[in-house]
Structures are given as C-alpha cells and as structure tokens.
Amino acid sequence: MATSIMQNRMFSSDSRAKPELAPVSAETLVKWLLIFLSAAFLVVMLILPLILVGAEALSKGWEAYVAALAEPFAQKALLLTVEATVIAVLLNTVFGVASAWLLTKFDFRGKAVLGSLIDLPFAISPVVAGLFFIMLFGRMSPFYPTLQAYHAAVVFAVPGIILATVFVTFPFITRELVPVMEAQGRSEEEAAATMGAGGWTIFRYVTLPNIKWGLIYGIILCTARAMGEFGAVSVVSGHIRGKTNTLPLHIEILYNEYNFTAAFAVASILVFIAILILVLRNMVEWRTQNRRIQRQRPH
C-alpha cells in the first residue's frame, strides 16, 4: 500500500508541478479511516474498561481498596487461583510437550483424531465442560459411591476446580508447540538417533532447546487463561466462600452483592496480573525474534 501511495504522489506532483498541493488520495483516506476505527475500537473495548476498573476500585479511597484485598475470603480466593493455576500449568506443560512430540515426531493410526481431540476444549463451552465433571464425579456418577467411601470429594471441592482448569487450558501448549515442531521436522532427532542417543537424551539436548521459546510462550498463554477461567470452574466449584471460590468467582459474588468497590478492587488484581503476563509475553516474543536475527547475521 505504501508504494502505491508514493506512486500516486509522484504522479500527481508530475502533472501539477506543485507537490504540496496534491489532494489527499483515496488510499490515504482509507488508511486513516482504518487507523481511527481500530483505535476507537481499542479504546471502547479495552482501555476504557481498564480505566473504569481502576477508577471504581479506588472510588472509596485507598483504605477501602486495601481492605477489600486484605479481606480473608479475597486472600483465600487468590491463593486458590494461584494453586489451581500452578498445578494446571505444570500438568499441561507435561501433557502439552508429550502430545506435541507425539503428534509431530511419530506416525501412528488415529493421529488426526488425536489432534482434533486435543482441540476439543477450545470448541466446547466451558460451562458444558464443567457439567462433564459434575456428571463424571457428582452424585449421578457411578464412581460416586467409591469416592464417598474414600472421602474423596471432587465436585464442589478443590480437585474439581483444578480438573476444570486443566481441561479448559489443555490445548494451549500443544497448539503453540505443534507448528514449531512441525516446521523443524524430524531429521535432527533422527540424526541424534543414528549417533546412538536415546529418547531422553534426544529430547533433552536436541528437541527441548529448539522449542524452548515456543514452550515458554505457550506456558504464558496457558497461565493467563487458567487465572481467568470462570465458566467451567463456576459449575464445579459450588461457590463455598473461603473454600472453593477462585478470584473470578469471588468477584462475581461481590458484584452480585452490590459491593462494587470490593468487586473492582479484586478485579484489579486480575487486571494487573494480565498486564504483567502481557509484558512478559512481549519480552519473550522480542527475545525470540532478536535471537533469530542475531543467528542469521554472520560474524
């Protein structure tokens, strides 16, 4: 587009011999219109809400804000969110790397089916996913008597929340790694195998360094999604204050109780974490690109 604008300018300057008076071309108009539209959209959809969250949270002053955060139920909710996120991200890192490795470095029957199954959590509404776990581990489940016998509660308890979070964030790391690993092919692994390297050595010294940045990126995305998960967790949680409430659920409860200041104060924590993750994400992206440029440039 830029070149066509240039050509247009040159053309009009030739014909009129007064370049500074050249009329605004249609391309320039379209360009500014698009920029304005995107900017307006961003302001309305993202920036305004962010400012409003901050403003509302602080509307009754710093003391009210700190009090809302220091409240035991809010603290508990934050701890539970961090706990569920850490466990879900750890599990999904292992699952994600394993499934991406399987999908890209091996051929087997049913590979396409497995690939689609991994995407399933993306396609299913989180609420429906929550209902799955209610059906699987709740009162209607055939496993329920066994679970009861061992006093192991899944639904309306912390394990259910972790399960729901794992399910919803399952595809992130795999989806991030599969294109990277596919582009890299299998020959480096095969080369290592012909030199006598075993499976773990190949993974540790050949595959992992090659996918490192993609993996970190996937972990960041997975973390962001796990922290904010509402739908599936809401269904399996049971909303027991101080026990099974995560941050997003806690915010909803506060909001429904017309305790807006507290709701927005707690929400600001999530916003803050989201911005932190965004910055981290950009740093990783910048780092990856920078490395690529450095390696391509000969000494």
Binding site: G185, S187, E190, Y205, N210
Partner: peptide
C-alpha cells in the same frame, strides 16, 4: 540406528541449530 555403526548425512544436513560446529561434531 545408533547401534549399527553407521553415520548418516541428511539431505538438509539436519545440523543441531542451537549447537556450534564443534558441539555438532562432538555430539
């Protein structure tokens, strides 16, 4: 493959991209 006493040169070399020439050869 590693126990057959073979060396394999791949079509697109398949050099370990994050290793130096020295590390590649020594792997």
């Amino acid at each position: 493959p590693g126990k057959r006493g073979i060396g394999f040169v791949f079509q697109n070399y398949a050099l370990f991209r994050h290793m130096t020439v020295r590390e590649n050869i020594g792997f």
